[in-house]
Design a protein around this nucleic acid. Sequence first.
DNA 1: CGGAACTATTGATCGAGATCAACGAAAGAC
DNA 2: GTCTTTCGTTGATCTCGATCAATAGTTCCG
Lengths: 255, 255
Amino acid sequence: MNRAEIKDKCKQCSIYANGYLFCAQLDADELCALSDHSRTLTMKRGDSLEGEALGTWPIVAIDMGVLSMQHLLQDGRKTIAALFMRGDIIDLRNISNRNRGALIALGKVKLCRLSPRVFEQIMGKNPKAQKVIWENLRDQAFRAMDHSGDIAKKQALEKLASFIFECRNRQEKIPECDTIDIPVRRIDLAEYLGMQPETVSRCFKELEQREILVAPRLNAVRITNIPMLRRIANGDRDAVIKDAGKHGFKVLKIA
Amino acid sequence: MNRAEIKDKCKQCSIYANGYLFCAQLDADELCALSDHSRTLTMKRGDSLEGEALGTWPIVAIDMGVLSMQHLLQDGRKTIAALFMRGDIIDLRNISNRNRGALIALGKVKLCRLSPRVFEQIMGKNPKAQKVIWENLRDQAFRAMDHSGDIAKKQALEKLASFIFECRNRQEKIPECDTIDIPVRRIDLAEYLGMQPETVSRCFKELEQREILVAPRLNAVRITNIPMLRRIANGDRDAVIKDAGKHGFKVLKIA
DNA sequence: CGGAACTATTGATCGAGATCAACGAAAGAC
DNA sequence: GTCTTTCGTTGATCTCGATCAATAGTTCCG
């Protein structure tokens, strides 16, 4: 495969196009070798990455979309333990045997399955690339820890507020645009936050009624009272109290 | 510092003594350099690692004991987001600015603060060492994700069952000994599992009453019915049902 | 050792959110 | 386009675990 072809394959991919991500750190030879031994894959909602596919292709880099790690309990309860997005590199070498969750797409996902051999070679030789994936893995770890902290003791409204900030932090900042993309459905959001879809719905409603945010569509919100949302996310009990306000009684929505 | 002295400093440390851990992968020169630029530290319960100390010493390797990452909410609620033990290497470079939790000892902890410069040099040159810390970080990430899954949707009894298995997996296996060490107090356990100490206590009591385990001391259990505990941990609702048994009513404890 | 401070357990009560049920709105399928 | 299925919302009820309260047991000090 010549370099022009590789460019065709990779130049569309955000992992190469975005200067901060993994493939952008590689020189022409490295990119060539990696590209030649890797396979892209497009998934649609509900598709799952597992078993033998992960045996030969245990390293996955996300180009676009949201991939979830799901745990299924025996009686059917499901939880989403982590969300992976653009730039995340998931290394599942030697852990298929454990009780890990399944990797399931929550919408259209484009990813690249990297050759473990070439990946390891690059890890050993290219310090810039090494730094990028090390920091990505570290982010994944700390993100998962933060998430544990969020769902352990926070109330439903607080979890949702935290999640909205998590979305804001993870998405690329577009100046002059304070609309935050919610890249998952309500039902997935519920599974990620350890609550029921009904509760998620009620919490969104409450935040809208209290004029803390506006949700023009299901997959986007605009925060209108950032300090208040921050207080809720940080677990300030006073901020969580239902519409009591200065009147001391619940103010019903006035159409 | 000569090599004999370094041996004195490091030979007692499990990160060097245990062949699977980081320092055991280093050659004499590397160990010498790392040892020379690192500082050991002993902490006692409640001690916290933070601020300026983490600025100059952002990389910490645990030799002994349990270190927790704690998140504090504005109204005083506290959660333990992760537990770090022997062999774990925590890399906090460039993340002090974010809303990370504090690192707090849950008992006597011995750790070694590694020189970031030497650490990075070794990362770049020693593939064996690189592999070990990469896998350690990956374990931390997956452990945190598993933990998120555990606390998101599981009931109290199920969370405790999962935690007991987590303890079993993480501790060194001693053949002929099925006693599992619970390395944290009830109160920390509650904070880690997102429940109240009262509930933890009640769950232990229930597991003992149902003869699934025996707790000779507060910091140890012996499982007497592993399959049943596994079923509970895996979220089999039938296994969770309170002492209903075949009678369909709750059997009170008969002294 | 003795006393202070913290930790663990047990019981009683309460409330946030799960669950159940029903309907309307999107999103795919063909 | 129409049909089917899944998803999101709202309301009513119930339950698990939080909270409050009291006591017993540990650990840590000087």
